[in-house]
């Protein structure tokens, strides 16, 4: 129950931050952070696949509605969810942990979380920006946007995670 409420609050908070704060935040030209994918990253491991895909689709569509780009964020979020399923099934053995592990920096450690966040962010941004442009001739420019935006998003993800890091340690 606790986890459900926590995730609902996280969902609302991340959508609000993304739509009203980060939407027109720009670093070097056209590179925008998409922090809302943190919601997909932080869903607990025991989330069933159907729920994971549904929630990813939902948050993508939610961002889309505010950005006038229906389907764009939704598609890239669904792909991100698929990559998340693949990564967790390869790298996480649930038997090694005593009580329900969560994909957070505090519980899984820096190395695992960095790899996990890096891959998911990159996949999401790659598909998002390429779907948006949808033109082969502009791929080199888009790739550089993907790298810089990923860097920006990753920084924000780690700031957000470190903010809540100490809280969990104290428990």
């Amino acid at each position: 129950m606790n986890s459900i409420i926590k995730n609902i609050i996280r969902y609302i908070l991340l959508v609000l931050i993304q739509v009203f704060l980060l939407k027109n935040t720009v670093l070097f030209g056209l590179n925008t952070p998409y922090l809302y994918i943190l919601f997909i990253l932080l869903l607990p491991f025991e989330t069933p696949n159907w729920l994971l895909f549904f929630l990813s689709f939902l948050i993508g569509l939610n961002i889309d509605i505010f950005n006038d780009t229906v389907g764009l964020h939704a598609a890239s979020c669904v792909i991100t969810a698929f990559v998340r399923v693949s990564i967790t099934s390869i790298t996480v053995q649930k038997d090694n942990y005593e009580s329900d592990p969560e994909p957070t920096l505090a519980i899984m450690g820096f190395r695992w979380f960095f790899f996990y966040a890096l891959v998911l962010t990159f996949v999401h941004h790659f598909f998002l920006l390429n779907f948006e442009v949808f033109r082969f001739s502009e791929i080199p420019a888009t790739i550089s946007r993907v790298f810089l935006s990923s860097l920006f998003t990753l920084t924000l993800i780690f700031i957000a995670e470190l903010l809540f890091f100490r809280k969990k340690q104290r428990k």
Partner: peptide, 12 residues
């Protein structure tokens, strides 16, 4: 699930 939701997204 990927196929289903991706199809919906692309239709939209």
């Amino acid at each position: 699930f990927l196929i289903i939701y991706l199809t919906i997204s692309f239709i939209l």
